[in-house]
Nucleic acid binder design. Sequence first.
DNA 1: CATGGGATTGACT
DNA 2: GTCAATCCCATGC
Length: 199
Amino acid sequence: MSPAAARPPRAWWARPVLDLARELIGATLSCAGSAGVIVETEAYHDTEAACHAHIGLTRRTHVLFGPPGTAYVYRSYGIHALFNVVAEAEGVGAAVLVRALRPVAGLEAMGARRGRVGPRELCSGPGKLTQALGIELPDNGADLTRPGRIEIRPTATGPDQDAVVAAPRIGIIKAAELPWRFCLRGSPWLSRPVPVAPR
DNA sequence: CATGGGATTGACT
DNA sequence: GTCAATCCCATGC
């Protein structure tokens, strides 16, 4: 695989959210002594109804409209913390949800945080990977362009685009037809398999 | 101030 | 396959 690039500057994160969601496949996400390679993402944009930012600027969504390269962490179903990275220009509400990782470092710490589960269950879901990495609500708003608890290192050359598959997003009702889920083709570390027949 | 829904997971039938 | 857990916050009275 390609070597890790340096910590990307603000402008790197400012690209269109669909481009960023693809680009992040293969990047390494690390936090609290553990790390994994991103194998699944989803894009969200304020112009479509599934995005939290669709309702406009509120206390919950203001991070989404802020500077790109910022972490957006929110609680889902009262239980799980889900991790996103803000994309596009400041003033646009857009973010990439990280949905699954291939664990590569700190697997013991991941297991301690997740409870005794098999390696395939450590990071194969958006709520699982935040628990495995120790990402929680206080990480909301973290600036990923500065040194901190959470770090994302893309590959130097970006992912091989032939290896990235697009599919409909998971677990949403609104705008469910958009193929804005991106997966590493054939990866055994996905939250769910890519559907065989596209719709 | 009360209510309702949600980008999920794990346990159970 | 079904379903509850549990909390943040937007919305409405």
